[in-house]
């Protein structure tokens, strides 16, 4: 996983509430057995005018001119501004894979759906919750200022505007530690192997029917 420390990048708007993971990456692209290559199909149904299929040459497809991310001014954006309940619906990790593959490193919204929020951290993507009025102001600033960039400083848990305004955000300490160091949390859990085995031994006495029954 790519470590995340500080990112300064162009901000781009996704001005809709309840953006679901079907919208982030439609199901036909979930047939891939890989973790990469989903970026060109991020937001496929609103980004292109035709119906996308795996294996298509996306550079030849008609773009939806009304979709914000298609505007040249947002090319190369790394920070996505979003509305409430972003990432609701399916648990597909393909959603953060697609956002990360497209080039986003952080998403700022007033709220996120639980599973999506959790999945982001496994993929070097930082979901940031800021108050609704602050997010509103950032949307306005992005719309009014071409080339508007935001700095996300994970160490200090701050979003910093070009004018030097600072917004603090909350993040769980363990997740922060893993993200900053690009750590694989399976390796960390396996350090507790003895505790896991001790639990299994105890539970096998208490609820033996749970153990050993699918063969």
């Amino acid at each position: 996983m790519k470590p995340f420390t500080t990112v300064t990048g162009l901000a781009a708007p996704m001005d809709r509430s309840n953006v679901d993971t079907d919208m982030i990456i439609p199901k036909q692209f979930l047939k891939s057995i890989k973790r990469s290559g989903f970026g060109p199909n991020l937001f496929d149904e609103v980004r292109y005018l035709d119906e996308g299929q795996p294996g298509m040459d996306n550079s030849q497809r008609p773009l939806n001119p009304d979709f914000e991310l298609n505007k040249p001014r947002y090319a190369g954006a790394q920070v996505l501004l979003a509305r409430k309940n972003f990432g609701c619906g399916s648990s597909r990790e393909h959603a953060p894979w697609a956002l990360e593959d497209y080039g986003f490193r952080a998403i700022i919204a007033p709220s996120f759906a639980d599973i999506f929020y959790n999945n982001c951290f496994k993929n070097g993507l930082l979901p940031i919750v800021l108050a609704e009025d602050i997010v509103d102001r950032l949307f306005q600033a992005v719309a009014n200022t071409e080339g508007y960039t935001l700095t996300v400083d994970l160490e200090n848990q701050q979003v910093i505007t070009p004018g030097g305004e600072v917004f603090e955000f909350e993040v769980n300490a363990f997740r922060k530690h893993c993200l900053i160091n690009g750590l694989d949390d399976i390796g960390l859990t396996l350090q507790d192997a003895d505790a896991i085995r001790a639990y299994e031994t105890r539970r096998e006495q208490e609820t033996p029917w749970v153990f050993g029954h699918i063969r």
Binding site: E93, I115, N118, N119, N172, F174, T189
Partner: peptide, 21 residues
């Protein structure tokens, strides 16, 4: 019972555990 992402599927396969809040 709850849904998880693919990284957690791998985590459960490898450790039989999840880190949860």
């Amino acid at each position: 019972a709850f849904g998880i992402g693919t990284s957690e599927v791998e985590h459960v396969l490898a450790t039989q555990c999840l880190i949860q809040r």
